[in-house]
Design a protein around this nucleic acid. Sequence first.
RNA 1: UCCUCAGUAGCUCAAUGGCAGAGCAUCCGGCUGUUAACCGGAGGGUUGUAGGUUCGAAUCCUACCUGAGGAGCCA
Length: 432
Amino acid sequence: MPPVVYIEDIARHDGEEVTLRGWLHNRRSSGKIHFLTVRDGTGFIQVVMSKADLGDERFAAADHLSQETSLTVTGRVRADARAKGGFEITGTGFTVVSASHDYPITPKEHGVDYLMDRRHLWIRSQRQQAVLRVRHTVIDAVREFFNSRGFTLADTPIFTPSACEGTSTLFPVQYFDDTTAYLTQSGQLYNEANAMALGKVYCFGPTFRAEKSKTRRHLTEFWMVEPEVAYADLDDTMDLAEQLVESVVARVLETRGAELTHLERKTDGLEAVRTPFPRISYDEAIGRLKGAGLPVEWGGDFGGTDETVLSSQFDRPVLVHRYPAAVKAFYMKPDPARPDLALCVDMLAPEGYGEIIGGGQRLDDYDLLLQRITDHDLPQEAFEWYLDLRRYGSVPHAGFGMGIERVVAWICGLEHVRETIPYPRLLHRLYP
RNA sequence: UCCUCAGUAGCUCAAUGGCAGAGCAUCCGGCUGUUAACCGGAGGGUUGUAGGUUCGAAUCCUACCUGAGGAGCCA
């Protein structure tokens, strides 16, 4: 048997006899010639099998190969201007590993619900593979960004004893006999403790929100990366956030051009994602929205339409800082210059993809934090450990969280975040 | 939770009160350069469920089920 090669390496084997191990993606046929599109997880390539090369018996057998049959194929690699990847293979033989009958995802169109019910098969498609490879690169770039800047990965728990922020709806789970635990909605509070120990930290893991949101921007289970830095202020965290996003986008452009092309993603907008990003205050944002004729009032949070209108005024992500403290979480530090504002920041992605980052400077004063916990009717005993961080050497600190799926959806130019994760969890979707 | 829309062949859809159809998929036949290949033929239906109006309902009405988009909330 000729040496086994991967399709992604095929250019290095021009003119050689090789073996591919993969699956039949699609087949077209003429009377005396078959065109098999074979995929092996690293790429797709066309294998041409003619009656003259294979002989009548083998050729007839190839006529009945069906979609997604696993097989090994031998043949000679040949550069061909007609081929999509520049190369194709003149087939000399094949062996079926395991047949596939009535594969449900045909080359024609299907509805979202149908495809989502078969998500475990849908991910075999070229488009879904492209999205998942971009996701991989985004995550890889995020880790590389923090690791190369002296951050320590310190993961935070997924089971938590109570509502961290007191705002979002949490998923309760029974924790042994008579205790209720909740799936984390953010690692942030633990991250603050980790930053007091390790200086610059990040956590990266799944996050859960039980809100019954039905929009293209929401999953009930999503992945979030959260850095936290001791001795950092709001400006430091805005710097860090824009550098992270610039770095991630640059890495995808550099290494995933083929995937973006396959997704028909225009890259002009992504090429423009260079620091510094525009920074506007909440006050200015309100002014801009009123100027655009939207019915906004000072004091409220922004809705999806507001975010889209704001972000469309810039050619790169925009940082909106200093929201009214009343609409933000209890742990946000007030602006000393205007205590009704919180030292917080949201980053809005272009093209209506919404908020991809939320963060800010944390409340580091013991008395004020205790006051906020009381004001929000939170149980003080559950936050004693968190108050300890202000009892024993409190320092200014700041951080943020970035939602991976929204970033991937934006970079890929997708309609919905549900395609950015292998098995999305949605309000009405828990299978497969 | 609320608003809007949708549910017809395995899939994607048409039929707007009067014989339930097409393309793809499957099977059979044809074709040596296809790219969601193409050409010819065949099989394939409790029109989401239950009730109602009507001579007659996929079509109109009511309830329910399932899904999608949006609102609120959030990354």
